[in-house]
Write a protein that binds this DNA or RNA. Structure first.
Lengths: 151, 151
DNA sequence: ATGCTTATTGCAACGTGTTGCGATAGACTC
DNA sequence: GAGTCTATCGCAACACGTTGCAATAAGCAT
């Protein structure tokens, strides 16, 4: 739960998972995980590429994106698409959550599991569909902007 | 309501709206609207570009995308992002709807306004957020795939 | 029909992300 | 430590979409 050691635990988990699959631990991967852990909230692919290149200028976009894909496969990271279609990544240690994007003020709000529960239930009720909270990315008007429009 | 004449009505509405804004009616725009109307469901940007170029090989992607943006501004078309972040366009005459993408079987389901009502209500209740149905794009497991997993 | 104004087009370059391929370098065996 | 196997890397090219700019042409006035 503390913040300081999540990174180390992550690295260990990663090394173990890779070994088990006959895959390899490399410095690039360490850097990418570090960068991802350091960008505590969300970061776009391009941002991550740039930050990784600050630590290791020889790193290329393809490596970064491939590593991010790998982290997702291992369940250690997630990505979703913002309203403009850009990719946004975050570590799995961040609790599962959805995203609410306000088209009025541009604000991005997170939607935690507790708040989402009734929504997911409504989705299942209406459609039989069991939605993934992590891919739930809504666009609309936040409460403030709705109030502004009324006022 | 009939299917045959929506296209013509659309062109007329478009011409009127453009004139009012001091904008111009061009053959390219006619072609793009026709193509969009002909691809009855949804089409990605790249698909639309290709189809437009079959009718007019001189058309370029930038023109097509700019026209699609214009159509959205005028409220005659919409786009949303698929699970891979690709853009998908459809005419506004298609009733407003959300999208459900099943990660099990890959099927894409539409979610009409009636089915979505309780979901939107749950979203507002949980978050104060008024979500746009047209941007509602969910990923999860459809009823069939859920049953398969259980079985 | 002619000329004027300026919206639209095509081009070219860019940004983000993906893919194929040969070269590099991890990890394991001896 | 040297050799082997192959996962990973860097590069280059591609795909989708966007943007700036000069040339074209739509729409209006005469």
């Amino acid at each position: 739960m503390a913040k300081g050691q999540t990174n180390k635990g992550l690295t260990e988990r990663l090394q173990a998972a890779l070994k088990e699959r006959g895959q390899r631990w490399t410095e690039q991967r360490q850097i990418i995980v570090d960068v991802l852990a350091a960008s505590d909230g969300h970061a776009t692919g391009a941002e991550l590429v740039e930050r990784v290149r600050q630590d290791d200028p020889s790193a290329t976009p393809s490596t970064v994106y491939r590593t991010l894909d790998l982290l997702e496969e291992l369940g250690l990271a997630r990505h979703h698409h913002g309203p403009d279609g850009r990719e946004t990544y975050h570590l799995e240690e961040t609790t599962e959550h959805g995203h609410l994007h306000c088209r009025g003020c541009g604000a991005e709000q997170e939607l935690d599991a507790a708040a989402a529960a009734p929504i997911l239930k409504a989705i299942t009720g209406a459609t039989g569909f069991s939605a993934d909270l992590d891919h739930l990315s809504l666009q609309g008007l936040c409460a403030t902007c709705r109030a502004d429009q009324k006022g």
